[in-house]
Amino acid sequence: MTEDAVVLMERVRKRDADAFEALYDAYHRLAYGLAMRMLGDASTAEDVTQAVFVKVWSSPELFRTGNFGAWIARVTRNRALDVIRSRTVRAETDLPQALPESESVEDTAFARIDRELVRSALASLPDEQRRPIEMGFFEGVTHQEIARRTSTPLGTVKTRIRSGLRKLRAQLEMTVTT
């Protein structure tokens, strides 16, 4: 699918609307699902999905190569974070960084991996590792906020995030190779 997406994006750069439509059909559930998970509101999630795909059409050069799904997820997460920012009155220092959109995810090992596999890999993590990862990625909060909300020392939160991500990577690798 990733190879296809790369080819489709090359056609989108040449203003091929059919290629764009094929990309939308293949990836809109990913963008919409992520936006819904982060924002919890169907109408805003649709607005975010629309903004993401309009951006794919208007600035296709932002995607260089690599894992298209991971790239579209980054763009979606960043747009959803913008919405979260506009909704809250958190200080600028409490807001998490946007994920780099011009940087390609070279590793395509997990491109379009089955969502159930990711969910089960995530579920297999100990709660103390899974929770901060989910909060950090889906709720748009910083590790400092996670530490506050879970009453855990900052250093411990960081270490748990790292251990959790490493375990997740290992679990996914096992799943992909077996």
Partner: peptide, 9 residues
Amino acid sequence: PAVGALAES
């Protein structure tokens, strides 16, 4: 890439 896969869930 593990973070990239998170979105799939």
